[in-house]
């Protein structure tokens, strides 16, 4: 992960009005993003660069604006100001200036989104196999046998018993649902996956297994991830780099170890000490 060296840049400190340089190695670039619902509710003055293969953690307490930022970055919530650009091959796509068709195509091919609650990310009334196959069908796959084969492969990848292929997710445990959601997202071979508290609703023992799986998949598939979590332990395990959010702004950004071992901002210090006390 040579990109990590670039990751050390404190992009968050850039003033919003400075046009960010196009970085041919970057995967995504946010410039002066702002989306507010009220004073300090939402996110503002957000600028950063994400590199291929990098896992970027957004941490902070609830209400700090992490989820708003994630929605804005993932094409779900237009910002009031600023822009998000994504590099598609040699081509930079301005997320909100481009058409909805392009945005949706990105979302279901090159991107993934893992919701905290798997019920929001899965199609609950249809079988596990159909859940996995949906992205492929949306891309024009029309061979039932091959769709099933991909579904079986992915069930194995995420460690779900392949005999469950025709069961609906309703019959699955929370951990299995979350693994199915991951498979459903990764089947299209995305480069970038957004995750919103992916282990949030799970028991501790189940969490550990999902985290292991995510770590393995991220490495194997060379995924870039933007991960929202309030759990610093999760952040330490998965993220290469962290951005700490408080009251809609990024207060500190840097390498995960650096931030957790030597926090500079008083809020980060508080956050780190509170988790360590637990």
């Amino acid at each position: 992960m040579s990109a990590l060296a670039h990751g050390m840049r404190m992009d968050a400190a850039l003033p919003a009005d400075v046009p960010a340089m196009e970085n041919s190695q970057a995967l995504m670039q946010a410039d002066g993003l702002c989306r507010l619902f009220g004073p300090e509710q939402g996110c503002q003055d957000i600028s950063f660069t994400l590199y291929p293969g990098e896992v970027l953690g957004l941490v902070g307490e609830s209400g700090s604006g992490k989820s708003t930022l994630l929605s804005t970055l993932s094409g779900r919530l237009p910002p009031d100001r600023g822009r998000v650009r994504y590099r598609d091959g040699a081509d930079w796509v301005d997320l909100y200036a481009t058409g909805e068709g392009r945005r949706r195509a990105l979302l279901r091919t090159q991107w993934g989104f893992v919701e905290q609650n798997p019920r929001d990310g899965l199609r609950m009334p249809v079988s596990a196999g159909a859940n996995i196959g949906e992205r492929l069908m949306a891309q024009g796959a029309r061979h039932y046998g091959r769709l099933r084969q991909s579904a079986l492969d992915w069930l194995r990848h995420v460690e779900i018993d392949i005999s469950r292929i025709d069961d609906t997710p309703n019959a699955f445990s929370g951990g299995m649902q979350q693994r199915l959601q991951i498979a459903r997202n990764l089947v299209s071979g995305p480069r970038l996956v957004f995750m919103d508290e992916p282990t949030g609703g799970l028991d501790v023992s189940v969490q550990a297994r999902i985290l292991d799986l995510l770590r393995k998949l991220v490495r194997e598939l060379d995924l870039s991830v933007i991960l929202v979590t309030h759990d610093l332990a999760v952040a330490r395990l998965l993220a290469d780099r962290l951005m700490v959010m408080r009251r809609s702004r990024i207060v500190e950004a840097g390498l995960t170890d650096q931030i957790l071992d030597d926090p500079q901002h008083p809020y980060t210090q508080l956050l780190v000490s509170s988790i360590l006390r637990v």
Binding site: G101, R108, R123, G129, A130, M137, A138, L147
Partner: peptide
């Protein structure tokens, strides 16, 4: 957008 993947999801489920 000609985004008809879910139509085939239904047909897939039928076969299942």
């Amino acid at each position: 957008l000609g985004d008809y993947g879910i139509m085939h999801v239904k047909l897939y489920e039928d076969i299942v």
